[in-house]
Write a protein that binds this DNA or RNA. Structure first.
Lengths: 335, 335
DNA sequence: CTGAAAGCGCTAACAG
DNA sequence: CTGTTAGCGCTTTCAG
C-alpha cells in the first residue's frame, strides 16, 4: 500500500504538499496539484484513515449502537440515519448486539478511543443515571428513543403520550370501549411512557380500565401469540387491542387467524411504529408512525453542534401520526 | 482524554510497560502490573484504537457491506455475522447503502485505509470482473451470496439449484403442475441461478413451462403486488407460485387476500430465505432456508485464514432446506 | 505557494 | 522484567 511519502517522491514534491492536495486543494498551484493527483492515481494511493484520524483527532465516522438490526422499527431508523449522515459527509458504522447498559458501555469504551467522532445510541432501556455514565464516557452522544429529563439536549424522543392518544382515540371513535393493551419490555422508557399515557387517557375519558386488559408481549411477535391467548381468556369482553409495537400486532394477528378468528371483526388492532410489514398483512395494520426522517435529521444536527462546540438546545418530543388502514372495525357495524 | 504516557507517569513506569500491560500482561511483574492497572483506572484510560491500529497495521474490525439493512434476509445475516465475529474477538461495523458496484468500490476504498482488517461484502449484483477489482482494492474480502467461478475461495453461496428444486418438488408432490415463478432483480447472480434451476427442473420433469408463468417482482413486496396481478391475468391456470424471496411472497399474499381470495386454496406459495415473517403470516409461509449460521461461520474462517496468510480452500455451495408451513395446499384436496 | 520538522498515541525491537 | 527509541502515515505550524 503506497503512502503519502511515496506519492510525494513520485511527484517530486514534499509530503506536506500531498497532504494539502487532499485537504485544501485550492491552496496548491494547479500544476503542482495535477502532478500530485497523477502520482496518487499512478500509485493507487488511498490515505490511511487511521493516521489521519490520529493526527487530526477526527475520524469522520458516526457510530450507531443498536440491539438487533433486524426487522421492524430499527432497521428503518438505521437506514434513515445512514442517509442523513452521508449527506453531511459522515461515514456511519453500526454496531449491533447492544441490549443493555453494560453492552453499551463496552461498545462506547472501544469506539470512543478515536474510532468515531460521535455516537447515536438507541437505548430505550437506559435509566437516567446510566445515561449520565454514558455521557461521561463519550460526551458526543445522542440518545434515540430515550426519555430523559436531565439530558433533554441529547435525547430524541417521540411524543408517546400523543401517539398513544391517537391510537386510543381512533378506537374510541369506532365505538370501542373495552380496549386491551399489549405492552413491551417493562423497563423500556418508551413502554413506560405509553403505559402511563394509556392510564391517563382512560381517566380523562372517565372510562373504566381493568388491569385484566393489560398484558405484556415484550415487544416481540412470538411472545405476543401467548400473550393474546391469555389476554382474551382473562378478558373476553375486549373488542380492540393497542399493541405498543407492530411486531406484537403481527404476532397477535397471525395467532388469531390461525384460531380461525375473523379480523378485524373479532378484534380491532392498532400497532406502533408503522413498519413496512403493516402494508402487507391482511387486513392491513393501522399503526402509529414515528417521524423517522425528522428524528435522524435532528440527530445529525445535535452531532454537528457538539462537534463544533456550539451549545445544545433542548429537544422537544417529536410528533407522531396515525396511519389508518384496515385493522380497525366500527363496533356498530360488526355487532 | 488520558494517554499511555499519562498512565506511565502516574504509575512511575515507562510507556512501554503500559503497552505491555495492555498486550502481554503476563510479561509484566504482577506488582508493576497492578500499579499500572490502578493508574489506568484512576485516569480513566482508554487506549486510542487509531494509534494502535496505525502502529500494528491491524484494527480488529471487520466491515460488512450491505445494501439495505432492513427487513428480511440480510438483517438475519448481519446478526449472525456480528455474533460469530465477536466470538473470535473482532468488532464488526456495518455499512449500508451499497447497492451497486460503484458504491462498493467507494466504501472499500475508504475502509481499506486501515479502518478494517477484512470485509464481508454482500454483493449478489456483482459480476466476475467487478469482483476482481474489488479484490484488488482489498484482498481480504469475502463475498456473501455471490456466485463466482474464479474466486470460489472468497465466495460463500448456497446451493440455489437445490433450494429451487426443493421448492418445486414440494409443489409437485402436492399435485401442482402449473407453477408460476416470481423472480427477483434481473442481474442478481442468485436470481440467475435460481431461474436456470427452474428451467432445468421443468425439463427434467418433462413438464411444459410457459414463459407466461414467469414474472419479475424485483425482490420487493410492493412490486410483487402488481406482478401477481399481471401474472394471474396472463396465466390463470396457475395453482402455485414459487417466489425467489419471502418479501415478494408477502406482497403476493397480502394482495390476493385483499382481492378476497382464499389462501392457500387459490394459490399455493413458497418463498425463499425463511425470514422471521414466515411464521407470522396467515397462512404461515413455506420457505427455503439458507443456513445463515454456517455461512457466517465460514465467512469468519476465511477471514482468519486470510489474515494469517494461510491458503484458502475452495468453498462448496452450502445446503439449503425447505421449511414446511401452511401456504401449500394439496391440489387434490382443493379441487 | 511549498518544504522542513514536530508531533498524534501507540507498538516493537533492542538493550540493559 | 523494564526502559529507550524509532517508527506507523498523516497533519500542521512555521519559515522561506
Amino acid at each position: 500500500m503506497s503512502t503519502a511519502r511515496d506519492v510525494a517522491k513520485f511527484a517530486g514534491v514534499s509530503i506536506a504538499t500531498v497532504s494539502r492536495v487532499m485537504n485544501f486543494p485550492e491552496a496548491v498551484k494547479p500544476i503542482t496539484r495535477a502532478k500530485v493527483e497523477a502520482a496518487m492515481l499512478a500509485l493507487n494511493f488511498r490515505p490511511n484513515q487511521m493516521a489521519r484520524a490520529l493526527a487530526t483527532n477526527r475520524s469522520g465516522v458516526i457510530a450507531i449502537l443498536v440491539d438487533y438490526v433486524g426487522g421492524g422499527y430499527y432497521s428503518m431508523l438505521l437506514d434513515a440515519l445512514e442517509q442523513k449522515a452521508r449527506q453531511r459527509g459522515f461515514q456511519t458504522i453500526i454496531r449491533c448486539g447492544n441490549s443493555n447498559a453494560d453492552d453499551i458501555y463496552r461498545s462506547v469504551k472501544q469506539l470512543s478511543g478515536g474510532q468515531c467522532d460521535a455516537i447515536v445510541a438507541c437505548v430505550p432501556f437506559m435509566k437516567e443515571n446510566e445515561l449520565k455514565q454514558l455521557l461521561q464516557l463519550q460526551p458526543n452522544t445522542v440518545f434515540m428513543n430515550c426519555v430523559s429529563t436531565a439530558y433533554r439536549q441529547h435525547a430524541i424522543v417521540v411524543d408517546n403520550q400523543l401517539g398513544t392518544t391517537l391510537a386510543l382515540e381512533n378506537l374510541y371513535q369506532h365505538g370501542h370501549r373495552c380496549i386491551g393493551i399489549m405492552t413491551g419490555v417493562e423497563d423500556n422508557v418508551e413502554n413506560i411512557e405509553r403505559l402511563s399515557a394509556v392510564k391517563a387517557w382512560f381517566e380523562k375519558k372517565a372510562l373504566r380500565f381493568s388491569d385484566k386488559w393489560l398484558i405484556s408481549g415484550n415487544f416481540c411477535a412470538e411472545n405476543a401469540r401467548h400473550a393474546i391467548h391469555q389476554l382474551l381468556n382473562q378478558a373476553p369482553e375486549l373488542t380492540a387491542l393497542f399493541c405498543f409495537n407492530d411486531q406484537m400486532a403481527l404476532g397477535v394477528m397471525s395467532y388469531l387467524q390461525q384460531q380461525g378468528e375473523q379480523l378485524p371483526e373479532r378484534l380491532s388492532i392498532i400497532g406502533f411504529d408503522n413498519t413496512e410489514a403493516c402494508a402487507f398483512t391482511h387486513p392491513t395494520l393501522t399503526s402509529v408512525e414515528q417521524p423517522i426522517q425528522e428524528m435522524a435529521h435532528r440527530a445529525m444536527n445535535i452531532i454537528e453542534n457538539m462537534l463544533n462546540e456550539r451549545s445544545l438546545q433542548e429537544q422537544l418530543p417529536l410528533v407522531p401520526s396515525l396511519i389508518n388502514r384496515h385493522s380497525v372495525a366500527s363496533l356498530s357495524k360488526s355487532m
